[in-house]
Design a protein around this nucleic acid. Structure first.
Lengths: 208, 208, 208, 208
DNA sequence: AATGAATGAGACTTCATTCAT
DNA sequence: CATGAATGAAGTCTCATTCAT
């Protein structure tokens, strides 16, 4: 994903906002150009396609999400919670992202974008799964010395990752559907806690 | 709107299939009529407009999903697992539903549909939440006598419901994105198990 | 080429006329629809594509040209002359055809049409070549009895066909470029005569 | 307009190549500028507009064709054959010219170009006609002394010129349509021979 | 109950060209 | 001499919908 020019970045930003407001179908070249105060053909000087705009958007999202939400080296429940706290804060601050980040509509529209979304999704889940794997190895508090018996009761990291990511997606989605009227951060924190405390209980049971 | 005629039901069925193939944007009145072997105006004999078709579709989905997937009275982890097993079987058998059931695209298109989707989603989650509540009250095996101390380590039923529902949605979504090429039932079972066994561990720790 | 409906035929006729006036680039869906007194989308009820219209046009041209210009069984110079007389009369009567019949622009626009044009051209030339072959076999007046030595001085039928067809095409083209201001039939007759009399002379020389 | 600058010449050359590849509609200012490695406005430094480029192109073609294909003073069949041999060699070497040289599409686009094409065509034909006239006067081998009775069987020089030029154009066109896959020189030689030998036969018959 | 024909709005895209820098 | 940014006009095509029959 080559670096975007200022204008390109501007276009992408407006596109995100528009999708936030009216979904993917709310983003048309015409309306996008109007919002930028130019005519439609002007957009084509900066992007080859509408698809190119969407692709750039995915790139920006990936960069922004990953850079603004770096994953802690130490994979503890607290680190996880902090990570998602930052995510919820970001989405609260810029709700349009909430529509776009979890954008599965893309999948049906353009085959080219389909794989991009697919990959992005997979990468997200793998990062989480890796974190859960680490917890299994080093203990939930990261304190288990190397070589010690892992608390094997922590199950299938992949499934845990799917549960957490899916849960987060769902809560964000409901928040959007409800017009962002309630406190996403609070509800989200409870969600993440629900998983991590359950795990703590389970791990503690064995560790005891 | 209730009690669809045969023809209406036929239309809705084809619509489901078409959305399964090409997403919401893959469903056009033209293509729908072609698939039914009639012309477009014919559709308007049976439904007022496209929105009405989608609304009817949601109704059918609700009925079909809920009727074919009755919730067991006994809210035990096993009952949950069985429930979702049935869901995965249904989706494997008729993959088009996988696209439609979790259709959030709807939200952006039509305000009328938006609330329908919202409600459907909420109802789903509440049913699950109720189940988790019951587990908290009666123990995971449903054997805790009324009045006994609940295993309080089972957290926030709403969050658990969101995690499970979200996780299921996500796994189904990935399955579709991958072209339904892997075994949804197997992967899904692992997912549900991941949550219930974690809960068992936690509950057991305290109960012991 | 399935039979065209009345409306389709109407569209094709107007298309021919428009190409006659402004070349292939003079034919736009917008202008075509305007001339028919309808809006653009109406055209798409009758033809899938602009290409489909052009293809139908080629079909009509082939039919009309070949049916209105049947080739005499007896392949004599006079028959040839008569044939082309009919062609020149047809073009004079409906000059738009002159632009379309020899339309090579098609070749560059649409790969699908390219082969249609190619074939049409080849068929035309082959018919002529067959006629020249017959002359070689049966004599220019068709009177040489079977088995007699052919007047071998009549050369390469294919080349003769190319010369004649090419000459006719060129004269028609010049006529169009000059705004159809001179007598195509007269000039065309001289052209055909130039070839056939030359052949007569040559054949006579040997036959003598 | 005369005496193109280096840059102008470069532009025209690329334009020829592009028309060769995609027809007149394959030549756009955008693509032309891309191929030259500059932006569009740069082209307007060198030519007033697209028409000017095409006009310059016609000029170049005329010059190049006529200069590289000088007409022999002696108008004999052999000289004609040699002339066209050189033409076929030129086209084989640079097939793009084949599309451009006989470019009648031009006629429909721009009235200014229309007359240029018309004139070019006429000049071509007249040169040939003059040659045929000379043959009529001086005999096919150029040996008939001035004042002798011309072999009157050689008909209408104008028509002969049209036949030959038209035939050549057609054979070149078919060669292009077939993707330049066969030997143009060989096929072209046969074509020219077909006319000249026919004439020889006819003339010989009388001359004898 | 269905069709044939049409429509208004609007989708994405391309073209030749211009203007300030 | 060239660019970056933009434009007006126009291109083909699709969509949901309507109306007379």
């Amino acid at each position: 994903m080559r670096d975007l020019t200022d204008r390109q970045r501007q276009i992408v930003d407006h596109a995100i906002e528009m999708i936030g407001e009216g979904g993917l179908s709310g983003l048309t070249m015409r309306r996008l150009s109007e919002r930028l105060g130019v005519t439609e053909p002007a957009l084509y000087r900066h992007f080859e396609n509408k698809t190119a705009i969407l692709a750039a958007m995915l790139g920006v999202l990936e960069a922004e999400t990953y850079e603004r939400l770096p994953f802690d080296q130490t994979a503890t429940p607290d680190a996880l919670a902090a990570h998602f706290d930052r995510l919820f804060a970001l989405l609260t601050e810029r709700p349009a992202l909430a529509t776009v980040v979890f954008l599965d509509e893309f999948a049906t529209t353009d085959p080219e974008l389909k794989s991009m979304v697919s990959e992005l999704l997979a990468k997200n889940r793998e990062r989480l799964a890796t974190a859960f794997s680490a917890m299994r190895t080093h203990g939930l508090d990261g304190a288990v010395p190397v070589g010690a018996t892992p608390p094997s009761s922590i199950p299938d990291p992949d499934s845990l990752a799917t549960l957490l990511l899916g849960g987060v997606r769902l809560v964000v989605r409901e928040w959007r559907l409800d017009g962002c009227r309630w406190d996403l951060a609070e509800r989200g924190r409870r969600l993440v806690a629900a998983l991590t405390t359950t795990m703590s209980g389970a791990a503690g049971a064995i560790g005891a």
